[in-house]
């Protein structure tokens, strides 16, 4: 059995769909940090069968806003002094910049070099976003 030490202070990202961990790892820029980080893949899970996990030690400051978009089932646990201080799901972000590609071929963001895609959440129940430029809808 693979063992990763429990962390005294840090963040645990759990319930990541197996295979999605590396993408989230990269998206959070964790390759370039100086604090200890562990990406654990294909962990056995009673709920999910297999899952990925990321353990981040020595920091509680990470911008996780976009995680809800990348992995809707993710849970985030904050640990301080060896104790769980907070456990939360990440809701879909209201505004997403640069992550969703507009599928409308007539949209300026698909054409313009300076165009960064911007989508805003229009319906949380259906996970539907709308392009802030052309109005094209995208379902996550």
């Amino acid at each position: 059995m693979l063992r990763v030490d429990r962390i005294e202070r840090g963040i645990v990202l759990d319930h990541i769909q197996a295979g999605n961990g590396l993408r989230i790892f990269d998206r959070l820029g964790l390759r370039d940090v100086s604090f200890p980080v562990a990406l654990i893949m294909n962990v056995r899970s009673t709920k999910m069968g297999r899952k990925d996990m990321i353990k981040i030690s020595d920091t509680l400051e990470l911008d996780l806003t976009m995680l809800g978009l990348l992995e809707p089932n993710i849970t985030v646990t904050y640990i301080d002094d060896g104790n769980v201080t907070r456990k939360e799901a990440i809701p879909l972000p209201e505004r997403v910049e640069g992550l969703i590609e507009c599928k409308n071929p007539r949209c300026i963001t698909t054409y313009e070099r300076h165009g960064i895609s911007v989508f805003t959440l229009v319906d949380r129940s259906t996970s539907e976003y709308e392009c802030a430029y052309c109005g094209e809808r995208a379902r996550m």
Binding site: R106, C107, I108, T109, E112, C131, A132, Y133, C134
Partner: peptide
């Protein structure tokens, strides 16, 4: 006037 949808908004931002 521009043929692309959302072009005016982008132009306005700059």
């Amino acid at each position: 006037r521009h043929p692309r949808e959302g072009a005016a908004q982008l132009a306005g931002e700059y």
